[in-house]
Amino acid sequence: MSRLHVVSGKGGTGKTTVAAALALALAAEGKRTLLVEVEGRQGIAQLFETEALPYEERRIAVAPGGGGEVYALAIDAERALLDYLQMFYKLGSAGRALKKIGAIDFATTIAPGLRDVLLTGKACEAVRRKDRTGRYAYDHVVMDAPPTGRITRFLNVNDEVAGLARIGPIHNQAQAVMRVLKSPQTAVHFVTLLEEMPVQETVDGIADLRAAQLPVGGVVINMVRPEVLDEADVEVAANGSRAAVARTLSHALDRTGFGGTRHPGLAERLVDPLVAQAREHTERLALERRGRREIADLALPTYELELLGDGVDLAGLYRMARELRKQGVSE
């Protein structure tokens, strides 16, 4: 199976959270994963409730089910560039001179394409890295990648750069990175909600990836809401059984110490708003069904994660990881 998991998704879909849960899921059974952040937001540190991540690989979590470990790394483009200069060109003080005159600034900000080269390059380096015994340093590398709208360009930037720098070390480095990214070692996953725009962006994003011959992984549907009532139920509650519902409600509230005799007529006044909320629920379910169909049409492995009512904390993250495993993400 693939070893570099690139996790993308529209803003607000929980991309970082899903990437973290995936890293945990893949680390189970004694595996070691590296969770990589490329957008400098320190979202991983917040999720794992630790202080800001430095530019170094650091263990941040132990996976459920024995022995697995998750390491994390927030890639800083400037530091990565200096690393590269050191590693590949032994530039030493010349590297510092480059920094002094603003060349590093130039490379990492004004020509941010180079920045993307560094970010993807660093991740690919971690994928390929082996220890002395010849084992991979990490079984899996999970990247919390840029959002759907930018992912193809982000991953493909090395192609562009390899075209720009037609020979020389940058060319070679760019090509080496592209070889990893386009191989079956890599899988690009999309996180989506069952809402129109995120689903549309997912469909478009996958088409873009395929056009660029980048390997598509699976779709993670996040924040799925359980179906509590369906359309027929709501119709019955609104019309046929409205009075019975009102009485039942009144009684139930009364018996649990609210409403009833102390608030006469409360239950009756609550019925319509409650039914209206139920109607919104079924409208959303209808939209979700449509979204689910569109995603099913993609014929990709699909995983579903339920909405965590109180937001995602560490416990929620582990729960999501377990759920992903149960649905076969690590097979």
């Binding site: 509590v228 059984s241 519902v245 039942t248 139920a278 629920h281």
Partner: peptide, 30 residues
């Protein structure tokens, strides 16, 4: 009230109304 509880999914209109009402309450709690 009870005669109209003709939820086809249930043979028992009272239980069915209870289920419906519980659903409304759960959605509200969410």
């Amino acid at each position: 009230g009870a005669t109209t509880a003709q939820d086809v999914t249930s043979q028992d209109p009272v239980a069915s109304t209870a289920r419906l009402t519980a659903g409304l309450l759960r959605l509200h709690a969410e």
